[in-house]
């Protein structure tokens, strides 16, 4: 069906936000193609009239009342963050 080359690897890595060296591209292309070859064995069966199955036991999404159920634990959660100040998460400047 499809053949992944180095430029496709660059595109997927960009979508997945994974930094990648030039030297890794060919290796990834080879491995991803091997996995796709396995995956494409699905083509052996005709599924035109089959409905997709999203959930193994046909459950539907449960609902609950829209009420506050969790206390605010900002300090606890920020205690494990890489970089915070004044209750905010710090990242590099986004807008110049």
């Amino acid at each position: 069906m499809s053949d992944i080359d180095s430029s496709t690897v660059v595109k997927i890595a960009e979508l997945a936000r994974l930094a990648m060296d030039e030297s890794q591209l060919e290796g990834y292309a080879r491995e991803l193609n091997a996995i796709l070859e396995l995956v494409e064995q699905m083509e052996a069966v005709d599924t035109a009239s089959v409905d997709p199955l999203a959930h193994p036991i046909d459950a539907t999404q449960p609902f609950r009342e829209d009420e506050v159920s969790e206390p605010n634990q900002r300090e606890l959660f920020q205690s494990i963050a890489p970089s915070v100040a004044d209750g905010l998460y710090l990242v590099p400047k986004v807008i110049e």
């Binding site: 995956v39 699905m42 083509e43 069966v45 599924t47 089959v50 409905d51 997709p52 199955l53 999203a54 193994p56």
Partner: peptide, 10 residues
């Protein structure tokens, strides 16, 4: 396609 195959397996 995989979700359809999943139904066949189930």
């Amino acid at each position: 396609k995989a979700q359809k195959v999943r139904r066949l397996i189930r």
